[in-house]
Design a protein around this nucleic acid. Sequence first.
DNA 1: GTTTTTTTGCAAATCATTTGCATTTGGAAG
DNA 2: CTTCCAAATGCAAATGATTTGCAAAAAAAC
Lengths: 136, 136
Amino acid sequence: MGEQKLFIPKGYRKTKQREAILKVLERAEYPITAEHIFMELKNDGIDISLSTIYRNLEMLTKEGLTVKSYMMNEDKARYALPDKKNYLVCEKCGKIVIIDNCPFDKFKEELIEVHGFDITGHSIEVYGICPECQKK
Amino acid sequence: MGEQKLFIPKGYRKTKQREAILKVLERAEYPITAEHIFMELKNDGIDISLSTIYRNLEMLTKEGLTVKSYMMNEDKARYALPDKKNYLVCEKCGKIVIIDNCPFDKFKEELIEVHGFDITGHSIEVYGICPECQKK
DNA sequence: GTTTTTTTGCAAATCATTTGCATTTGGAAG
DNA sequence: CTTCCAAATGCAAATGATTTGCAAAAAAAC
């Protein structure tokens, strides 16, 4: 199933902190914050410094292994593997649902044609009310 | 042409600072930062406090008159009128181009069907290399 | 094992954004 | 057009996420 193959990019060393961070990102179901990773690891009994987490997230993002994003009304960055980059957020309960078949791909061609850009990436965030909250 | 009709939302007072901020947002061609508004107004000879700008942007965003977003590799928020919400960013020169005919609308129905969300908003950010930078 | 270079942890520094509070202002009511 | 009060502003201080300097620890190289 959802097996990822996150690896430590070439040129960087393999450390237990680095691997632990990757593991948390792998099992996360949606974009998470640095603080979230910190807590998660604390639960796992792994002691790590927040700055190490930030430094690794910066590296991973630069290397394209993770994607950084911000959620509406939140002041902290979230990080996720690229396949969890597009998501729906429920404005009531905060539930986050990943958009699997990214609708964007179908528009890519159109955008290239209209604007002439060589497109390298994108990020889509959608807000709404989830089915459960609609019933209330 | 591009005439906007930004107004001060009902229940809020008309102040010269508020109007000045709205004016800057109207003439901006893409999402701008609070600092940008501050500078712009300083140039216009209008003296205003940064906190007033932040307070107004928060209000405008809450009222739906502006949209807040973050750009890749930037740590500060940007604000724009809703029609300038979706844009392309050149990774080389930083040029920003607004996506006029938002491709998203075509997917809205599909998303509603698949996830059952009642969709209230979205934001799309696309990265790439602009035509000029491609030539270099 | 020893050396070299990267990574980490800690504490202090940054920097965008927020907040408390006294003062000013808009505009409703008289 | 004066009076009055809530809303808005400015300033300085506080906040909170993220970054950074530096010495110690740990990888990979030798």
